[in-house]
Design a protein around this nucleic acid. Structure first.
Lengths: 243, 243
DNA sequence: CATTTAAAGACTTATATAAGAGTTAAGCTA
DNA sequence: TAGCTTAACTCTTATATAAGTCTTTAAATG
């Protein structure tokens, strides 16, 4: 890529931002990597350090990069707390975040339904990995999750033993498949518990459940996971803060 | 306020940020006002323009200020689309935002319940204004709202005729009462429709509804509105994007 | 002469560069 | 281990140019 500072062109710092994003999405830098220092990048790109800084600052705000004073700037990883809580909005009644445990029910391959294929930008009938699991909060089964992944990207996940699946899948996606979830769009509805829901969660059939239909995207906007969670909200709720 | 640049003190730009916020919260500048230019503020505060700029930049990101190139920097207003959509997450099935109409059922004063008083930081038994209304989306009654406001801040709202209430209350709060909603915390649950819910929304009693319990806060963190929305999600859903 | 149009200037934010002092973390050396 | 050195980000100041908005002035037009 060539930078341009001609009149009327896109600002330099934005071009640099795009360039840095490209290096991440193309795998030149992977999560956890340290990137060159601001001075190194400035020299390489023939701009001033301040311009590089502005580009990096915006990427830090977007959770793409992480700065550590005295050490350097790193590609953000989604391990630890971030993996667990950044995309997890269920808290218990007194508002405290809780560590969910997971019990995988099944993990198998199948053909994508039309809707699934459409939402994941797959050709109709493409193979997907389908994971069913229950999440336990405060020792109570609270959430039923169905996860759909393109088999193309998550090849051997379909053959894996269900028990081998870790609690924090997004960490697994990142470390095992090089796929970093960067954004999620969620659609929330209230639905009635099916018989299966009811028996898994220990409720009456027809009880109201909170259904969260999530599409998770990578940094370049590719949808790579569908996740439908049906959640009992008698002891927990979905927390959202709007600024 | 005195700025300090001593070793170990809070960075200047943050102190300036606080100072600017204070001028807004104390009403020295009100929404829509233009604030002094970066150069003027820099001279007044004895710092460089770049430092003022950094403070302003963060406040723009927080939706406190708005920049208009060639004109100046203004205190953000919540009129127009922002008032309507920034805090409104219900969209219809194909994902398009819709303009909700409102039908006010009642608007009266009463004593705050314990929970209400606690959430609004009021002394127990303080007067509150209580608004009941229905919101119509796509010509279908979809949402039942109950709104609780401290009477102390919204004095004459309780005496107002119900029909005089506009659709976008947050605009009214700002223009009539000088209260700008800056942030909202929402707690979402699935609940069963009561008989009243059911008859108002034209559903069966016991149907699952999405309940959104919102606490709305001003810039300085004071809670000034409680709002409980019970929403039929058969034709609509709650949309949330996480980055 | 009155009105419209165009140019100029002033002011503001936006972008870019440069430089120095401060803070933090890691590794090396004694 | 204690202290030093180095390298990185952080904060602040300074300066210059670009670009957008508005007002004033001047010119052109009818």
């Amino acid at each position: 890529m060539v930078l341009s500072n001609a009149k009327g062109s896109i600002p330099l710092y934005m071009q640099i931002k795009d360039l840095l994003v490209a290096r991440v999405t193309e795998g030149e830098w992977v999560p956890g990597d340290i990137i060159p220092s601001e001075m190194q990048l400035a020299r390489e790109l023939n701009v001033s350090q301040g311009t590089v800084r502005k580009a990096i600052t915006e990427l830090v705000e977007n959770n793409v990069l992480v700065r550590r004073q005295g050490r350097g700037t790193f590609v953000a990883t989604h391990d630890g707390d971030r993996a667990l809580f950044h995309f997890f909005h269920i808290v218990n009644d007194n508002g405290t975040k809780i560590l969910p445990e997971s019990k995988t029910l099944s993990c198998r391959r199948k053909r994508a339904s039309r809707q699934e294929a459409s939402k994941l930008n797959l050709s109709s009938g493409a193979q997907v990995v389908c994971i069913d699991r229950i999440r336990i909060l405060d020792n109570q089964p609270t959430l039923i999750e169905t996860i759909i992944l393109p088999a193309e990207l998550f090849g051997d996940l379909g053959q894996r033993q269900a028990r081998n699946l870790p609690n924090t899948l997004y960490e697994l996606y990142e470390t095992q498949f090089g796929i970093t979830i960067h954004r999620a769009d969620e659609q929330l509805r209230a639905v009635a518990a099916t018989d299966r829901d009811a028996s898994l969660l220990g409720l009456e059939a027809g009880s109201p459940l909170l259904e969260i239909a999530r599409t998770a995207l990578t940094l370049d906007g590719t949808p790579v996971e569908l996740r439908i969670s049906r959640c009992s909200t008698s002891k927990h709720y979905y927390q959202n803060a709007v600024f």
